[in-house]
Design a protein around this nucleic acid. Structure first.
Lengths: 321, 321
DNA sequence: ATTAATTAAATAACTGGTTATGCAAAAATA
DNA sequence: TATTTTTGCATAACCAGTTATTTAATTAAT
């Protein structure tokens, strides 16, 4: 189909559907050719029964990858055709054990020759082709099982969008964004505290003028994330990573990571040896981000924030390879 | 799926269906991921319209390989979603020219990024796989177009069944088969003539005792085809190929060819240099079989049969390489 | 200029699957 | 032991496609 050359691989689903219908259409005609009153859709159920003998509806469904109602219907049709009988011996009255009738077993034998012919016909196509469809499908099943197409697209989206994110230094025009992005998540999870108001309303006085830094993440020139590096007055730590906030609208663009790495980098540039932070274990994505950035859990420091229940540090000297 | 390792390639249709549904399922979630109110089944129609502009329902259907009613329904849904408008300018009031609305065009732009992401995601799968699914499908489309799966299976069946056919020399117990198989086709196409009755009722006297031969094709030990090599009293020809008959039930097993080749072989063994035959052009499969055996059309000989309107000969000396 | 044939699209009815729901039997739990 | 939860299946309703049929508009033929 020329059409699919134009669309590109995005239309893989449509292309697969078309090929599928072409193949099953011919399958119906093949049964006719062999004079067998058999519907292609019966095949998976019939095959399982001829190989394994008596099975329940749900067992069959699991094996062939159909839904249970689908197997129910197919067996009903085959019972009508006299190939299958149901409600075979079972102490558990919920279970419906299904098996082939004598006629069904006979057909199973007859069909074997037909299957051999089909196998050879498909092999002849494979021999003419340079790409092996059967193996390719098997691989896709495996690869999609490991990581779904959705997940893979999600990753591509993240990669692309993180390229569109720029991390810039704080400027007065971002003051409102710095405040509101932080207030948004703090007040939704906890309560704004005195220390929050001070830093958020007066970033210049409380952060920048004391030798700290603030970084802003821009996505399409809009500020969608912020993070501060606050100078600490402490013998153990040079800086605190704090006031990190990413807009929920901009989630999944790797912004936390980009901001965090930039803050760490800035600390390094200013010759810091240790960075401190405090957070709350309810904020799971944040905590796992801190771990990814190299922070380690510590304990025992006093803190002005009620919400802090976890403290972490990053030892810059130990990670410098 | 382990199941398909057991079934073998016969279950290709089922396996394709399963993969197809897995892919389209994820496609729906991908649109959701990008915040687009769009159904995967719309894609082919939408794509055509965004590339080609205004098109009629049937034109679209042809391009994307769907049925016309399918396109009718899909466009209706897209009209409802405000992406498409129909009944655009056309002098021919039967035609329904469909095109994208402003909203549709906007979406077409937005969707491009998404398509690029999907393309990359699929490429990432391809990179992990050793067999290229996309190319494999393209090849199958082409190969099935050249010769359908049905046709290929038919060929395999013929090959297998012709191996189960044995050509044996005439014996008295085949007299009835020799007579009835011939009478069956002669009386259905033409009328039995005096010469027919003689040869069919008394094969020994009229054929064998005069130095001719009769061969019988057995399929599962049943006589299903016959052919005679009759000694001629003629300076030009040593033998006549005649009384070839194959049961309609046993058609498509290459029996005609097997009988014909055996008769020619027997003539050679007896040192013949030319074989003659006469037939009727209404019997097209027979005529084409004679050509395949190497016979050439000739003309001008007298014949005792009313139904004969074509005469052929095989020059054994010219074909002996 | 009628009439017949063809074409385009809508509609109806079917197909082979799905998910959602309900019900009875069995197993687990209080 | 009585009650709750779980299990297995049937049934209903839906979905994305199909083929067959109908209707209307146009073109071809008499």
């Amino acid at each position: 189909m020329d059409f699919f050359e134009k669309t590109g691989k995005v239309a893989l689903g449509s292309r697969l559907r078309l090929l599928t219908s072409k193949v099953t259409e011919d399958a119906a005609k093949i049964y006719e050719l062999y004079g067998v009153a058999f519907s292609p859709k019966w095949f998976p159920v019939f095959f399982v029964l001829s190989e394994e003998g008596g099975q329940t509806i749900t067992e069959i469904a699991e094996q062939i990858g159909h839904s249970q109602p689908s197997v129910t219907r197919i067996t009903k049709e085959m019972i009508k055709a006299g190939l299958v009988k149901d409600n075979l011996k079972s102490t558990d009255k919920r279970r419906n054990v299904v098996g082939l009738t004598a006629k069904g077993k006979l057909l199973a034998e007859r069909i074997k020759v037909q299957c051999a012919d089909i196998d050879l016909a498909i092999d002849s196509i494979m021999a003419e082709a340079t790409h092996n469809l059967w193996e390719a499908i098997a691989e896709w099943e495996l690869l999609l099982d490991q990581k779904s197409l959705l997940k893979r697209v999600q990753e591509q989206k993240k990669i692309r969008e993180s390229k569109e994110v720029r991390i810039v230094a704080y400027q007065p025009r971002y003051r409102e964004a710095f405040r509101s992005l932080n207030e948004e998540w703090i007040s939704s999870y906890f309560e704004m505290e005195e220390a929050d108001y001070k830093a958020l309303n007066h970033p210049r006085e409380y952060i920048l003028d004391k030798g700290g830094k603030i970084f802003v993440a821009l996505y399409r020139e809009e500020p969608v994330g912020v993070c501060a590096l606050i100078r600490m007055n402490d013998p153990d730590y040079d800086f605190e990573l704090a006031k990190m906030a990413v807009s929920p609208k901009a989630q999944g663009k790797n912004i936390g990571w980009l901001l965090g790495s930039r803050v760490v980098e800035a600390a390094k540039e200013m010759g810091a040896s240790k960075i401190y932070l405090e957070s709350n274990t309810r904020l799971k994505p944040a905590i796992s981000l801190y771990y990814k950035l190299g922070f380690q859990k510590i304990s025992g420091r006093p803190t002005p924030y009620k919400r802090a229940n976890i403290q972490m540090e990053l030892d810059l000297e130990s990670i410098t390879k």
